[in-house]
Simulated scan of single mutants.
Amino acid sequence: MSLDALTDEIEATYADLGEECTVALDRETRNELALLATALEPESTDELLRRAVHMLFQTTVDTGKLDFQLRSGYDVTYDEYLSGMTYDEMTGANNYPQLDDERRYQF
């Protein structure tokens, strides 16, 4: 997999999600959401769910789990995804000329 494959899959998933996402809640999640809604008094529970996604995302980035998953599946990191280039492309590591071993040490 590559950076282009990751970008394509993210765009496809984004389109599939649409504007609204229906989620079935188990008993424990419903109880925790009710407690948070009562304590924090948001305008709607949708706001709490948006915050929860943001917190999970930030925690996943901060702990390095996102980079691990991206490196395992796509051989890129989150920073590479944000920049649109791999580290090798950024540093020019792929642009070194081929070495000619026969003439390498000749002056």
Rank of each mutant, 00 (worst) to 15 (best):
G84E: 00
M55K: 12
L82E: 01
V23Y: 08
V53K: 10
L56T: 05
D8K: 06
D101K: 03
K65Q: 09
R71H: 10
G64R: 08
I10G: 00
R30H: 06
L70F: 11
G18T: 05
T91S: 09
R50Q: 13
D100H: 08
Y78R: 00
G18Y: 05
S83Y: 10
G92N: 10
S72F: 04
T38A: 15
Q69R: 09
A12D: 05
R51T: 11
T91Q: 13
D26V: 03
E20H: 09
P42I: 12
S2T: 14
R103S: 15
E9P: 00
E28R: 06
G73T: 04
R50W: 06
E19M: 04
Y78P: 01
E102N: 14
E11Q: 09
E11I: 00
M55G: 09
L33P: 07
L17T: 07
Y105C: 13
G64Q: 07
L40D: 07
T59H: 09
S44T: 15
L33D: 06
T45W: 02
E47A: 15
L17V: 10
T77V: 04
D8C: 00
L36E: 12
M90Q: 15
L36R: 13
I10C: 02
V53D: 07
D100F: 01
Q98V: 07
E47I: 15
N31F: 05
M1R: 11
S44V: 08
M55V: 12
I10T: 00
Q106H: 07
R51M: 13
R50I: 11
D16Q: 08
Y105M: 08
R51K: 14
T91Y: 09
P97H: 03
G18D: 11
S2Q: 06
G64D: 06
T22D: 06
G64I: 01
Y87S: 08
A12N: 02
D62S: 08
A93C: 05
A52Q: 10
P42A: 13
E47R: 10
Q58E: 15
L49F: 15
T22P: 05
V53N: 04
L17Y: 07
A52R: 11
Q106P: 05
Q69E: 13
L25Y: 08
L40M: 10
E9W: 01
R104Y: 14
R30V: 02
L3H: 03
L36C: 11
A39H: 14
D16A: 11
D67T: 04
L49Q: 11
T45G: 03
T77C: 06
L48D: 05
E28L: 00
T29L: 01
E28G: 03
T45C: 09
F57W: 11
H54Y: 09
L6C: 07
A5N: 03
N94F: 01
A5I: 07
P42T: 12
R51I: 09
Y14H: 14
D46A: 15
R50L: 13
T77L: 04
R27P: 02
A37Q: 12
